[in-house]
Write a protein that binds this DNA or RNA. Structure first.
Length: 485
RNA sequence: GGCUCCAUCGUCUAAUGGUUAGGACACGGGCUUUUCAAGCCUGUAACGGGGGUUCGACUCCCCCUGGAGUCACCA
């Protein structure tokens, strides 16, 4: 089975989180079937072009570690190129390819030239809505004579080309939803060539999917209602229809289509909030899709292997940020020390090259769900912040006792060797041994020790703090506390 | 409003005619514990409603209700 799937990100400069999910489904499908994953830029709307948008989109693919087989690529020096042999992969460079198809539609009577101005169209629709009718082109230009068309074109009148929707029914089998059908009477005579000469989306994708031999078209559910236009075009042009799969929408908590106003919509914004690429992929790939009943964390290879389009749910799915946070924490816990340091680097201005900070990250990751949260946690390791000496005393002890315990344990710590300081477990064993052999209570020793080391009422364990801070800094902090208590 | 899609715990989902309706997040309780976090155990919580079909419906069909998407010279 050769599968060619495609993703058509519009060049708005960021990747929508819903697009990411569609991208992943495309990717899974292509990878598990040995097919190709094609990326195509659909930029036929000149008014909406954004400078540098394609570049930033491709960078997102890179950051997310998603590779595709064909499509535009970003060269090392930052210039755009492309790979694959059915290009170009950018629609604005394919204008000449669309024209013959439009001409053929015209010649066959399946399309017609329309001179209606957008002002008239707006009025017409307003009137239709006022009369409680469906807004739809009234076909005023549908039967203009060839002479009239030529004369008006010669006179320089602006025009578009519309497809002439035939009578009948349009149906297709959606790979996720099953058969979907429309009465053609409800379908509008869609513009296929705009007055600026650009093909509209509908004509462009149909032609491109055909020329690029796309087998599977995965896209958001919002495209269902425009699918009949495309399959009618396929029929008129006598080209095979691809397999369509309309992926359910990602929703705001109020169940409406995910929108910028109600939450983050771009992959970039999630990345900048400190979510790990793989966690985001795991989360978004299993939103509205569940490979196994009782598993949440999946390796990417597993996702590829298990993916099944027919098991994708049909209902929209609310983005559960809390679960994303939980999942990100799971991924954070799985990173190696060097991976963790590299991941946190962009999120903090602190110099993370020191051993202290590397160790601090390993400790504090237990308490955070996003990379951005490390900044706050790290402060305590960089330098001891001022704190109220009163917190050095455990709730079940007195200040005098705390001072005594602190003094004694400082001496013990001062005598521990470097080998002990190399591992949290060894430090813990040594301190516990000291406590039990002297008949002391954990709380009386551990509480003041921990607070003296961190300056905080809530923190990591004293053993972890000793390990991260090292002997010298630990003892210095303990002595500082002793002086204050 | 027309058309189309959709409908299991608060949220994400499992179940493909026979289960005490399972799991995860979140929430509650407990254990562990110097604090926080984590971990472990555990609890609350769902089949939108009505008709069919069937020995038997979360599962199949119909209607209703509800929600969403879409109705551009945007994709």
């Amino acid at each position: 089975m050769i599968t060619r799937t495609r993703i058509a990100p519009s060049p708005t400069g960021y990747m929508h989180i819903g697009t990411l999910r569609t991208v992943m489904f495309d990717y899974f499908l292509a990878r598990q079937s040995g097919g190709q994953f094609v990326v195509r830029i659909e930029d036929t709307d000149q008014a909406r072009l954004v400078e540098g948008a394609v570049e930033s989109l491709l960078k997102t693919f890179k950051k997310m570690n998603i590779d595709y087989d064909e499509g535009p690529i970003l060269l090392a020096e930052g210039t755009l190129s492309e790979k694959g042999d059915v290009g170009p992969y950018t629609q604005s460079k394919r204008l000449d390819l669309y024209r013959p198809y439009a001409d053929r539609l015209l010649a066959d009577g399946n399309a017609y030239v329309c001179f209606c101005t957008s002002e008239r169209l707006v009025e017409m629709r307003a009137a239709q809505v006022a009369a409680k009718q469906n807004p739809k082109y009234d076909r005023r230009c549908a039967n203009l004579s060839l002479e009239e068309v030529k004369a008006r074109q010669a006179a320089g009148e602006k025009f578009v080309i519309r497809m002439r929707i035939p009578e009948g029914e349009s149906k297709f089998v959606d790979a996720i939803r099953g058969e979907i059908s429309f009465n053609n009477a409800d379908v509008d005579d869609q513009v296929i060539i705009k007055s600026d000469g650009f093909a509209s989306y509908h004509l462009a994708v149909v032609v491109d999917d055909y020329l690029m031999k796309i087998s599977h078209v995965l896209r958001g559910e919002e495209w269902i209602s425009s699918t009949p236009k495309q399959i009618i075009l396929c029929t008129m042009l006598d080209i095979p229809m691809p397999i369509y799969a309309h992926v359910p929408l990602i929703l705001n908590p109020d169940k409406t289509k995910l929108s910028k106003r109600k939450g983050d919509v771009s992959v970039e914004s999630y990345l900048s909030k400190g979510y790990l690429p793989e966690a985001l992929i795991n989360f978004i790939s299993t939103l509205g899709y569940n490979p196994k009943a009782d598993q949440e964390i999946y390796e990417r290879a597993e996702l590829v292997e298990l993916f099944d389009l027919s098991k994708v749910s049909r209902a929209g799915a609310v983005m559960n940020i809390e679960k994303l946070d939980w999942m990100n924490h799971q991924y954070l816990m799985r990173l190696t020390q060097s991976e963790l340091v590299a991941a946190v680097q962009p999120f903090t201005t602190l110099d993370l090259s020191t051993a202290t900070l590397q160790r601090a990250l390993m400790i504090e990751r237990e308490r955070v769900s996003k990379l951005t949260e490390f900044a706050d946690k790290l402060g305590a390791y960089v330098g001891l912040v001022a704190y109220d000496p009163a917190i050095l005393t455990w709730k079940k002890a007195t200040a005098e006792d705390s001072a005594l315990q602190l003094k004694n344990v400082t001496e013990v710590i001062g005598q521990l060797d470097d080998a002990t300081f190399a591992k949290v477990a060894l430090l813990e064993a040594a301190i516990k041994e000291y406590i039990s052999s002297n008949g002391l209570q954990n709380g009386n020793v551990l509480w003041p020790l921990r607070v003296a080391l961190s300056g905080l009422e809530k923190s990591a364990s004293p053993y972890e703090l000793l390990w991260a801070l090292g002997k010298e800094e630990s003892v210095a902090r303990l002595q500082q506390a002793l002086a204050k208590i």
